[in-house]
Simulated assay, not measured.
Amino acid sequence: MSFRNRKLLQSSSSIILRGFRFYNTKSNPKVDFNKLRPMILKRIEDRAQEYPVKTMLPLAHEVLNARATLYDGVSTLIQHIPIWACKDCPEVYIGEGGHLIRTCHGYKHHAKNKVHSWVKGSVDNVIVPVETFHLHKMFQNVINHHERFDYDRIPAIVELCLHAGADSNHQTDSSTLLTPSSPEPLSGDELRILATRTLKAWETLRTGVHKLLLVYPARVCKHCSEVHVGPSGHKARMCGVFKFESWRGTHFWQKAGVDDLIPPKLVWYRRRQDPPILVDEGREYYGRAPVLLDLCSKAGAIVPSKYFCMMKMDGMTAPIKQ
């Protein structure tokens, strides 16, 4: 081997080995986890002293106020705008009557592509209730399966705000936020103002929850809609309640996002160029929209431009069969 080739081989070997360190495992002592456990627990206790973050307290109050405004607005709007819910699946539609799109899969997904069975909808069909265990303190022992009845279930957004230092005496039951069942007559302008305020509260709520999740951890199960607000998920074996696939299984936790605490729940959106009743043949042309956005837009609120793409506002209409 020539001197030049030998130098090239040495330089290439140094490049490959650069950045790596080799340790002699026999000389290194083994890690004693029994000694590390008290240190880890002490660090968790010290971390708890840093919460709640005082600068996040006004944001928590803003989120709770937006939530109350949202429930008040939706409960009033559904008394003036028709809302329909399928009694066999979670499908919802806003309009004078239900659509004819065959997307119903039945109660336990046993059916396939059948027509929906429409009934009058409620507030829970617009604002999907997401509940979680109410912790006595943010950093506490993990809830075991046999302890699941020792903790109350409250809205996940309220639990997140309580972790942020909000007043614990705040209304935690969604039913207490609803207005009386007797509707009051509203003019077109009053209905439009209410819809605009409700849509603004929804946007404020989602933005505030997004900021709170950057500071306070929350978990969601990968296989179902269970949410847990806290540094680690609980051990209650409830997975499968929503999908009936792994009954009474353990949850597979991952980081939660805004859509996990505030599900947008997309619905079919009827545009100006669409027929009065949406049929199954034109489903590829129809747009989709969050149910609350559709409700507020039909009451006169202006739709933000960021939703135009998913709503297909200027899209083509379905061809009419001769």
Rank of each mutant, 00 (worst) to 15 (best):
residue 127 I to V: 10
residue 275 P to K: 04
residue 136 H to C: 14
residue 237 R to C: 13
residue 263 P to H: 01
residue 259 D to E: 15
residue 63 V to R: 00
residue 180 P to V: 10
residue 169 N to G: 14
residue 264 P to R: 03
residue 279 V to A: 11
residue 148 R to I: 11
residue 161 C to V: 10
residue 295 L to Y: 11
residue 146 H to I: 11
residue 73 G to F: 06
residue 73 G to N: 07
residue 159 E to V: 02
residue 70 L to I: 13
residue 108 K to P: 07
residue 320 I to P: 04
residue 40 I to M: 04
residue 88 D to R: 00
residue 182 S to N: 12
residue 21 R to Y: 10
residue 119 V to R: 00
residue 73 G to I: 07
residue 181 S to R: 12
residue 122 S to I: 15
residue 180 P to A: 11
residue 211 K to E: 14
residue 166 A to E: 06
residue 154 I to M: 09
residue 100 L to W: 13
residue 71 Y to C: 15
residue 300 G to T: 02
residue 235 K to H: 08
residue 145 H to G: 12
residue 224 C to W: 04
residue 264 P to H: 05
residue 239 C to V: 07
residue 217 P to T: 13
residue 229 V to E: 02
residue 44 I to S: 00
residue 189 D to M: 05
residue 93 Y to M: 08
residue 22 F to M: 10
residue 286 Y to V: 10
residue 106 G to V: 09
residue 196 T to N: 00
residue 187 S to N: 14
residue 97 G to W: 05
residue 202 W to L: 06
residue 78 I to W: 02
residue 4 R to F: 14
residue 256 A to R: 00
residue 5 N to I: 10
residue 257 G to C: 01
residue 162 L to V: 07
residue 242 F to C: 08
residue 317 T to H: 05
residue 302 I to E: 12
residue 235 K to F: 10
residue 287 G to I: 01
residue 189 D to C: 06
residue 262 I to P: 05
residue 222 K to L: 08
residue 2 S to V: 04
residue 267 V to I: 15
residue 211 K to F: 04
residue 314 D to C: 04
residue 220 V to L: 00
residue 197 R to Y: 11
residue 145 H to K: 12
residue 38 P to S: 01
residue 243 K to W: 02
residue 6 R to H: 04
residue 245 E to Q: 02
residue 117 S to H: 13
residue 56 M to G: 01
residue 120 K to V: 15
residue 205 L to F: 05
residue 287 G to E: 02
residue 19 G to E: 12
residue 139 F to T: 05
residue 260 D to W: 00
residue 310 M to Y: 03
residue 173 D to G: 13
residue 56 M to I: 07
residue 9 L to T: 15
residue 88 D to E: 13
residue 145 H to M: 09
residue 25 T to Q: 06
residue 203 E to D: 12
residue 79 Q to R: 08
residue 295 L to Q: 08
residue 69 T to I: 10
residue 99 H to W: 06
residue 194 L to G: 07
residue 310 M to G: 15
residue 251 H to R: 09
residue 64 L to F: 09
residue 142 V to D: 08
residue 166 A to C: 13
residue 260 D to K: 00
residue 41 L to I: 08
residue 313 M to K: 04
residue 25 T to D: 07
residue 87 K to N: 06
residue 191 L to H: 04
residue 160 L to F: 14
residue 20 F to R: 11
residue 156 A to K: 01
residue 315 G to Q: 08
residue 83 I to L: 15
residue 252 F to W: 13
residue 310 M to A: 05
residue 101 I to R: 00
residue 132 T to L: 05
residue 200 K to W: 10
residue 254 Q to G: 11
residue 297 S to K: 00
residue 91 E to D: 15
residue 229 V to M: 01
residue 50 E to N: 02
residue 314 D to I: 08
residue 45 E to H: 02
residue 266 L to V: 08
residue 144 N to V: 13
residue 217 P to K: 11
residue 142 V to Y: 03
residue 138 M to S: 07
residue 287 G to S: 02
residue 229 V to G: 02
residue 313 M to Y: 05
residue 191 L to E: 05
residue 3 F to S: 02
residue 58 P to V: 14
residue 191 L to N: 04
residue 60 A to W: 03
residue 240 G to K: 01
residue 299 A to H: 11
residue 188 G to F: 03
residue 158 V to H: 10
